[in-house]
Amino acid sequence: MMVCARNVGKTYDLGKPVLSNVNFLIDKGEFVFLVGASGAGKSTLIKMFLRETLPTEGEFIINDKDIKEIEEKDIPMFRRTLGVVFQDFRLLDDRTVYENVEFAMIIVGTPKRIRRKRVPEILHQVGLADRANAYPDQLSGGEKQRVAIARAIINNPVMLVADEPTGNLDPETAWEIMHILDDINKRGTTVIVATHAKEIVDTMKKRVIAIEHGNIVRDEEKGVYGYDS
């Protein structure tokens, strides 16, 4: 999946621009960090990947299709090609780890036979094979985020979008999560991560797109977070 932002601008009604003149091109299979201070506009940009919000200026093109042209009724099918992970995990508290992950497959209508095989595989991949029957409140933050990642990738998305996935985690756990994301990327999925985690960004040597006050100030391969964090 290729993503192309062309002169993208976003202004929430009557406010000042949250994003302006944003340009980038992301190829299939890339791993991209989206960095910037709080309020810089990272989440707004992430929402465009999900077609949760539309640019008020320019074009945001995913797979040759301007997201403006994706109709309401086609959004569910569009979202099935993506996986998404949030800072706050968003797990269902009344369901086990297994059920939280299986949920994503039920929604897209995968038969039980396949679910029974696939869910344990994915749980194994994120290192939660032995926690299948635990409930979210019995899990650590890192484990919760692994469940969320498992849920995000179980339907084999072409692209995984993560908005501050390590924002609620201690540095060590954050590293574990980033390694899992890196692993997913190595298996072929495009991964976009909005983050604050300077050390990780600096160490991982991935492409970094830095945003400040709604503008892209830097876009470099094997980049670092920058000076101010």
Binding site: K73, P76, F78, L82, F103, A104, I107
Partner: peptide, 16 residues
């Protein structure tokens, strides 16, 4: 609400 929100991100149809 939370469940519905997650469902939407995973690509549930309105009728689902």
């Amino acid at each position: 609400r939370k469940e519905i929100n997650i469902m939407k991100y995973v690509g549930a149809t309105d009728w689902f």
